[in-house]
Amino acid sequence: MRTLLRRLAVLLLLLVAADQAIGWALARMFWSPANTELDDISPGILYAPQVAVSGSSRAKTHYVADSLGAYLGKRAYNFGRDGQRSSQYHYAVARMVLSHEVPELWLLDVDEGVFAGEEDVGRLADLLPYADRYPAVREVVKARSAMEPLKLWSRIYPYNSLALTLVKSRIRPHGPVARNGFRPLHGELAAPAAAAPAGFASAAGEHGPGAKANARKLDYLRRTIGELRRRGVRVVAVRSPVYPESPEAWRAHRREGDRLRALFARLGVRFVDMQAAGDGGFADPALFSDARHLNEGGATRFTRALADSLLRGAPR
């Protein structure tokens, strides 16, 4: 037993050395300015935005940040990221930005996923590289599993599955983040029926209308709003448009809007529903790349309409 323990101790030392060396190299590549493919948050923080947008791929592809900034006369940055619908992501990004800068306005792009349904803890892996630098993020990623704090002892683990992209960005740098984080989508919904994706129910919220509120998500939503307000940031929740394929989907979508409106009224946050009563001019499939995402033309129209709404300041 003693021999085994002695050799395991030596092996552990070797492992720690390898972990530190490789983890250091991966960290260097991740935090390099050349790595804008995986890290579009740091450039956003460096940009010191006065208007910040957080949310999922819908945020990323809907908010034309440079145009929004021009309309509002401020620097705007889009922190949207694929799959990040839950409030934990809003919270993590808000805390990261607030530790450097204090924006004037924060736009939370929301749907039911922000406060309801199962947590997709796998998605929180996107935040792992930031856990070392930002204690607030470290707290968020702990939700992935009870053993997460232990895994975070490893220096490689936060960069799990990123090596290939990091090496690629080293060989062929991606260039600066274009259009302040906005990533346009192309293509149009040709015909509503044919274009409706398989999981179209998602247009009415992927968790389905009336999905059960999730206590942890709600808690993080409250904390996000509280933290931003404490630092003097104005918070607005925005629901960007979808293209429901059927009357049932429309009804479900409206019910989701009602729930969100009631929730944000309780939280004392202005809620802008860009599709309320179908009057946003977004009932045109030509504006959509798929049922949940606007294409570039749709995003341009959405951004202008949102800016108008924000400038008017009137609740919709």
């Binding site: 972990d19 490689i156 799990n160 090596a163």
Partner: peptide, 9 residues
């Protein structure tokens, strides 16, 4: 190291 780098957790 490979488990940490490219394993699926």
């Amino acid at each position: 190291t490979l488990i940490l780098m490219i394993g699926v957790f």
